[in-house]
Nucleic acid binder design. Sequence first.
DNA 1: CGATTGCTTGATACCTCTCAACCCAGGTGG
DNA 2: CCACCTGGGTTGAGAGGTATCAAGCAATCG
Lengths: 237, 237
Amino acid sequence: MSAQPAVALEGVSAFAPAVIGRVMRQVSPEEARGSGWASALLISGGVLQIPQDAEIYGEGADAAAFYKVVDGVVRTCKFRSDGRRQIEAFHRKGDVFGFESGDAYRLTAEAVSDCTVIAYRRRGIEQLAATSNTLSQQLFGYFMQEMTRARAHALVLGRRSAVERVGAFLHDAAQRSRDGRTISLAMTRQDIADYLGLTIETVSRTLSQLERDEVIAMPVSRQIRVQDPAWLEDLAA
Amino acid sequence: MSAQPAVALEGVSAFAPAVIGRVMRQVSPEEARGSGWASALLISGGVLQIPQDAEIYGEGADAAAFYKVVDGVVRTCKFRSDGRRQIEAFHRKGDVFGFESGDAYRLTAEAVSDCTVIAYRRRGIEQLAATSNTLSQQLFGYFMQEMTRARAHALVLGRRSAVERVGAFLHDAAQRSRDGRTISLAMTRQDIADYLGLTIETVSRTLSQLERDEVIAMPVSRQIRVQDPAWLEDLAA
DNA sequence: CGATTGCTTGATACCTCTCAACCCAGGTGG
DNA sequence: CCACCTGGGTTGAGAGGTATCAAGCAATCG
């Protein structure tokens, strides 16, 4: 269960899931500063390598930083008392995650695959935003993106049938792929199921059915090619 | 399609459901300026009275304004090609809605009950935010609230059973009520169903079952009293 | 008063969950 | 090299819950 991420030169406290990671690779200054605004907020040593399935931060931990994905995929999720897990979002290269209104994280963030992320200090962000027009707009943009995704996710979950949910997931994934058709999945069927509010079996069955209907091709389970984009488009409408 | 929020004194076109409402009541200056920041953005004549079920703005319309609820309840929703409707959120007194990242609204806003809302100009908001620390923080706060709600809604919809969904809805509604137990519903069963991704019959049956189990009391269909708060609490956990 | 609207309740069909078996690829160890 | 194990994924059979179709009730309205 424990997802001590990682990676400590010396002793990582077993009870401090919030303290994680260390610099393992040097990222270029341009990459870290990203869109220009971030240098003032960049945490020294804030470039983190997170191994697969390791925790980046845990629910309830002090929300002192927010993060930007450089490489890999991150999931933010909630664990219920009955053991079920709801994935709120997958974050890919360029996405920012970990914004919080309160002092503590309300979700857990974990690495779906091996990841590189950059941590930015949260404290002082408002003051900086007030002095810098561009920073303000950048943050606003990231924020909007997060919100738009959250809304879109809620709309998908509001759909009742499994085909519609899986279809929406594929549609979204295809949109973000290079050519708009070829999807390489970093996540397991369980991840997809927990994201869509379905069971792993239903996800598997639905994908198989879509393959039989020649909407998609699935040479291996983690590689999906969309054969009939129009069909997905209609479903999403 | 156009949703000029404002305020036609004469002639409401029968074919322009988007053009609705007009100033019917004078709202005090303090009320309109609200938290102090808003006077600069307040649209002249921007206090609107919206009759029940009227549209405030439509999906696709130019997102020139955002709104604050003074009184009543507003729903933001999406209509699908198959005629189904998904309600993204209910907005109550003090809530702000209509934030958009792009130029057009992605959702439709309608009055669940007779409403009073204030419209604020969106243009120029970034500049203002950059010059005013307090405005920036206020907006940030509203924004965060919206995002937190969207996330919470997605988590509820990720839950599979009808009892859990209805329970979460009741829990939330009770939280916002005066005494934490007595709920006055402004919305119909259909609204609730479209918000929870269920059918009207399932919502009705679930409420009846909860009443039989003495978790709630329902003297009339729009009035619900929570008898067993702990039970709801456990369900929400 | 009949018509309409919002809501509840019943019977049945359908879809997803659950439980279970099985397949496959990769890794390990004898 | 092969037996074995493991984790991820697929598939099957049956149970259970929600959607669907249909009827009926109560309050409101013209």
